[in-house]
């Protein structure tokens, strides 16, 4: 980010981060359609995915208005390439087994929960109202994913092992997700979004509590963290996600309606 980043620029960037993370996680959950381990889970996964894509749409719509360069919410979602996407690295990771799916969801939900809670208090009314609607949804997501982490951790020997592996493998994507950069610092000063230090403390507190209850071992404090999503440097997965998600826009560039 340049030194002259205005609050307006920070806000546009931030809205895209919120929208893109929701969108990409929703997309990952869509991949599981018809493949969930039980019919009840089929319902629940689609429910969470619906919430996330719905939230993404709200954030994209507001972002489109602020960016104001003629692009619609759909164009922001379906016509940007990977280097312009700003989702957390966490959400683009593959579904893996159900322990990975739920571990990824839990790490994200914990961040999402505290972030959305803070955004409900934003002086920007549009943000506050989108966040207020999302808050109830996200609370349910977090309750559900933390329950699954506990079930797996303190379930059978196999599920414990799978969950521990998932936690260990996904851990390296948590650092960037919870740590604020200039964009988040700038917005926090304007009253938008969580206190960066508080967010890290809250997230770690909650995660450690759930992992302990799940009889899982938290990764070491000084574990290496993978970074880059906030400036558009993603893992190799995102390109393939977008190739699929944006297939129709790419194959039919002249189409004005669907």
């Amino acid at each position: 980010m340049s030194k002259t980043m205005t609050q307006q620029e920070a806000l546009q960037e931030y809205l895209l981060r919120l929208a893109d993370s929701d969108m990409i996680l929703g997309q990952r959950l869509c991949e599981l359609c018809g493949k969930a381990p039980a019919l009840e889970e089929e319902m629940a996964l689609m429910n969470v995915a619906l919430d996330l894509v719905g939230q993404a749409r709200n954030w994209y719509e507001y972002a489109a208005e602020l960016i104001d360069d003629g692009r619609s919410a759909d164009e922001l979602a379906f016509r940007r390439d990977a280097h312009d996407y700003r989702n957390a690295l966490m959400v683009e990771q593959p579904n893996g087994d159900y322990a990975v799916t739920m571990g990824r969801q839990f790490f994200f939900d914990a961040w999402h929960y505290f972030t959305i809670a803070a955004l409900t208090k934003a002086p920007d009314e549009r943000i506050a109202s989108i966040a207020a609607k999302a808050a109830k949804e996200v609370q349910y997501h977090l309750r559900r994913s933390s329950e699954w982490v506990k079930r797996f951790g303190d379930g059978t020997e196999e599920s414990h092992q799978r969950m521990q592996t998932a936690v260990d493998d996904l851990w390296r994507f948590t650092g960037e997700m919870i740590e604020a950069d200039e964009v988040e610092q700038t917005l926090f000063k304007a009253g938008i979004g969580p206190d960066p230090e508080q967010l890290v403390a809250d997230w770690k507190g909650l995660v450690n509590e759930v992992l302990a209850e799940a009889t899982l071992t938290p990764p070491p404090e000084d574990a290496w963290m993978y970074r880059g999503a906030k400036v558009g440097h993603h893992t190799e997965h995102l390109g393939f996600i977008l190739a699929e998600m944006q297939f129709l826009q790419r194959a039919y560039p002249d189409a004005k309606t669907w």
Partner: peptide
């Protein structure tokens, strides 16, 4: 493939 998931839920 979800058998282990359901078993874990039951055990928990």
């Amino acid at each position: 493939g979800g058998a282990w998931v359901r078993e874990a839920a039951k055990a928990y």
